[in-house]
Design a protein around this nucleic acid. Structure first.
Ligand code: MN
Ligand code: MN
Ligand code: ZN
Ligand code: ZN
Lengths: 153, 153
DNA sequence: CTTTCAATTGCAAGCGAATTGCAACTTGGC
DNA sequence: GCCAAGTTGCAATTCGCTTGCAATTGAAAG
């Protein structure tokens, strides 16, 4: 496992930023394997949530589909990825910075599946009202938006 | 919106309130079959969304599981049921009055799966802001809440 | 009431997403 | 380098849901 200040083929493999996640993995006693690294690197390049199958399409050489599922479970458990449901029966995942507040939502075009990141969130004040009305505690929510993107209208 | 016990032929087919849905089915040219009636009657008794499998558990004598799925597709198409996703990979369905505004959400206990109906909704003003920011039109949303119910805290 | 036929059903096979058992293989500590 | 624990690949399974097809049935027409 050549650590990467050393350029073996002329490319600058910048593992740099990834250390944020690999450090967390290792300090929790998990091995830093080739498949896990490949998945982390791929996730890190994404702008929007990606499915396990899509990951496997890119990494079929470096990682089995089952291992991708297992890696995702691990990353979920460690809060290094967030899972989303766009309503099509396939889970999607997004890498998040450890510790950072990554809570957000998405707008999905119902015709072309274009995804836009959405920062607006269900208002805290309403959440509190809801807590009072229902008696529930530790309330979270799942929220996604759907509509027609500018190109599809 | 209640019953109208109108007996067309002297038989006491006590369909009572169900006529609201059966009328819609029949006027759209669909047959009023024994399985469909059984599903409608069962849905009508529910307070919360129910899965196809749960319906089949109650109606295994009167209706095949595949027919329940097909009935649900029909009811969805005619906007006589609403579909919800509680995040466990199984669709849930709730009967709604034809024409009525049935949009609402749910609070689900993450420990015991207790469900509470929720009337609070994502604010329209925020939806409009979102439309302006993203350029999307005809925006809808999927929203469910999760937390610990009073008994599970 | 009987006939008639398209709509509907039950059953079994099939599909895609996700999970799991297990033998073979890595990783990282010594 | 050696080894044990952790991890992987592969194949088989599970689970929710869909589909092809022959048999059945609702309801309209006679
Ligand atoms: Mn996102
Ligand atoms: Mn409801
Ligand atoms: Zn939110
Ligand atoms: Zn709403």
């Amino acid at each position: 496992m050549s650590s990467t200040e050393h350029h073996c083929c002329g490319h600058a493999h910048d593992r740099g930023i990834l250390s944020e996640w690999t450090a967390h993995l290792q300090s929790a006693g998990h091995k830093l394997t080739k498949p896990r690294l490949a998945v982390l690197e791929l996730l890190h390049r994404q702008e929007h949530p990606i499915t396990n199958r899509e990951i496997h399409a890119e990494l079929s050489a470096e990682c089995d589909l089952a291992s991708i599922y297992r890696t995702m479970h691990l990353l979920l458990e460690m809060d290094l990825v967030q899972q989303f449901d766009f309503g099509d029966g396939t889970a999607r995942f997004e890498l998040v910075s450890p510790g950072g507040d990554s809570h957000h939502h998405h707008m999905i075009c119902t015709r072309c599946s274009t995804v836009v990141e959405v920062d607006h969130c269900f208002p805290d004040s309403l959440s509190e009202t809801l807590a009072r009305h229902t008696g529930f505690k530790k309330i979270t929510h799942k929220l996604e938006f759907f509509g027609l993107c500018p190109d599809c209208q």
